[in-house]
Simulated assay, not measured.
Amino acid sequence: MAIFGWRAVHNLLPTRAAISTKGYSGDLRCVVCSSAVEHLFCQCNLTREIIGASPFFIQLSSLSWKEWFLERVTSMTLESFDKLLVLLWSIWKNRNDKLWRDRSQTGPRIVASTMAWFDEYSRANRVSEDTDRSQPVSRKKWTAPVEDVLKLNVDGAFLPSIPYGGTCGVIRNAQGLFIAEYSYRSAFYGLELLLAVNITKAVVESDCLVAVQATKSLADDLSDLGALISEIKGLVAAVGEVTVCFANRQANMVAHRLASHSFDSNIRLDWFTNAQEFILDDLMYDHHRI
């Protein structure tokens, strides 16, 4: 999101107006509202509808886009600016959906879905107000499992525009030592791996709060992913003593680094004994913080 903001304020996003300086000679009108030269963030009717309403109430300005953006940085609270930045990213995504798929959302729909996502992300990463801040927050770092239990940290990489994704995982013991890792386009391969190597006591951690909640729920999942969630629950029960829990992104960095590898390859890859070199630094970092 920060990279998006930096590219936007420096006019580095590939708008029609921007790429016209590099040889593009097609239609220069706004993709979303079809008026004038593309003006996605400052003058577009859709953007004005969104930022002119609650919770921002930002009125039309004669400032340039960069001046307008910097004024928001200095005049808004951090939380409000974070919401604005996420909304601007959603507007950009909506513009691309309109351009490439001829599919766009209304202003209220964009605001509702974006704020729901933002609130979920904030809750997942916010320290509870009643936490004793004089004590270290355990979820901010990777914690080792108890003796005789292994921990499997998992993560995934997905893009809505591509009909597949990838998952990965790393298994460590109570001393924080590497046991195994995998990379594969399967949401439940980590659990299958535990079964294959006869691991019956494990903690499975993910930084996707929605997935953790769905897996732990006793109710049937009626969403489009219900069948997948049901299969994951079945594998959890088959392994044995498995605890599924949420971990903050900082506590899941090894799996997070592996995620891009699983996305790029459609081949199942397993590593035992020796971890891949590009995650060694994160493994050592977690090990020394136990």
Rank of each mutant, 00 (worst) to 15 (best):
N252A: 04
A196N: 15
E205I: 07
V239S: 08
A187H: 15
N198E: 12
D221G: 00
L194Q: 01
L218F: 09
R268L: 13
S230K: 11
S186Q: 05
K201P: 00
A202K: 02
V204S: 05
K216C: 14
S223T: 05
D220Y: 11
L191W: 06
N198M: 01
S265Q: 10
E181T: 05
L235C: 10
C245R: 12
S230Q: 10
L225E: 12
D224S: 14
H256N: 01
S260G: 12
F246W: 00
T215F: 14
C208N: 14
S206M: 05
T200P: 03
N252Y: 00
K216R: 15
A255D: 08
A187I: 14
R249D: 07
N266G: 07
D224K: 13
V244N: 01
V242L: 02
R249W: 02
I267Q: 13
N266H: 13
A238V: 06
V210E: 12
V210N: 07
A227W: 09
S265R: 10
L195T: 03
A255M: 10
V236W: 01
A237F: 13
A259G: 06
V204Y: 06
A219R: 15
Q250A: 10
A255E: 10
L225D: 15
C208V: 06
N266V: 10
E241F: 12
N252E: 03
V197M: 08
I232Y: 09
V244M: 08
R268K: 14
V204Q: 01
R257Q: 15
E231F: 02
V242T: 02
V203N: 11
K201I: 07
T215A: 15
T215Q: 14
V244T: 08
I229A: 06
E231Y: 02
T243R: 11
A202H: 05
N198W: 06
E192M: 14
E205Y: 09
Q213W: 05
E241Y: 15
V197C: 07
V239Q: 05
S262W: 01
S186N: 14
K233M: 01
A227P: 01
D221N: 04
R185V: 06
E205R: 10
A211P: 05
L194P: 03
A227K: 10
H256F: 04
A238L: 10
A219E: 13
L195V: 05
I267G: 02
N266W: 11
V244W: 01
T243A: 09
E231Q: 11
G234V: 00
V236C: 03
D224L: 14
F188C: 13
L209M: 13
R249G: 03
F263G: 03
A202M: 02
L258Q: 03
D224Y: 11
E192N: 14
E231S: 05
N198H: 12
D220H: 15
I267W: 07
A187C: 11
G190L: 04
A259Y: 02
S260D: 11
I229C: 09
F246G: 00
I267Y: 12
C208H: 10
V197W: 05
R185M: 12
D221Q: 02
C245E: 01
D221M: 02
H256I: 06
A237K: 15
N252V: 00
S265A: 04
K233P: 01
